[in-house]
């Protein structure tokens, strides 16, 4: 007996949810999550006062920009080093030198919180490196972190300059 219902049915199961495509999350989702984490972190960490030092910020921004663009900006060790580890250590040292300039610069309360967290991360990495000084992954991580800290200070200084210029 012919089943009338089957004659009009599709051959394959149409309920194939796996065939639906994955969806891309909106661009602003990570910044929203990051901001929320910052906001919650700020409510549990002590704040420092915000002291605008426009001159120091300007000098720091200029120094960083000029130095980063110079090909001979890295320490001498880099020029003689042939292996990747020495190069990583040299880049790390150069970035830390830049960071020292910024550490006395202008930062907002928001940036202080973020930087404080990164300083903790740096301290943890340094503790790891004291146990495994030849681990290139740790050095690479240190370079990425120092780079991000420099950028964070740089952005904070530009914001400060813009705020002061608006007075």
């Amino acid at each position: 007996m012919v089943n009338e219902r089957m004659t009009s049915a599709p051959r394959t199961d149409p309920l194939n949810l796996k065939s639906l495509p994955e969806l891309d999350p909106p661009e602003g989702l990570w910044p929203a999550i990051s901001d929320e984490m910052e906001r919650r972190g700020r409510s549990t960490t002590p704040r420092r006062s915000w002291v605008p030092l426009a001159m120091a910020a300007t000098v720091a921004v200029l120094a960083l920009s000029i130095t980063l663009l110079r090909p001979d900006a890295l320490p001498e060790a880099r020029l003689d080093a042939n292996d990747a580890l020495l190069r990583l250590q040299a880049v790390s040292a150069a970035l830390e030198t830049q960071l020292d300039v910024y550490r006395d610069g202008v930062v907002s309360a928001t940036t202080v919180d973020a930087i404080a967290r990164m300083e903790q991360e740096l301290a943890w990495l340094d503790a790891q490196l004291s146990e495994s000084p030849d681990d290139p992954a740790l050095w690479a991580e240190r370079i990425a972190l120092l780079g991000e800290m420099n950028q964070r200070y740089l952005r904070a200084d530009w914001r400060s300059e813009l705020m002061l210029a608006s007075y």
Partner: peptide
């Protein structure tokens, strides 16, 4: 350790699936 860079890396890993 509340490392923000790692949080972003982990977010990028799972963002599409979660969304």
């Amino acid at each position: 350790r509340d490392c923000r860079r790692t949080q972003e890396k982990v977010y990028r890993t799972y963002a599409r699936s979660a969304w």
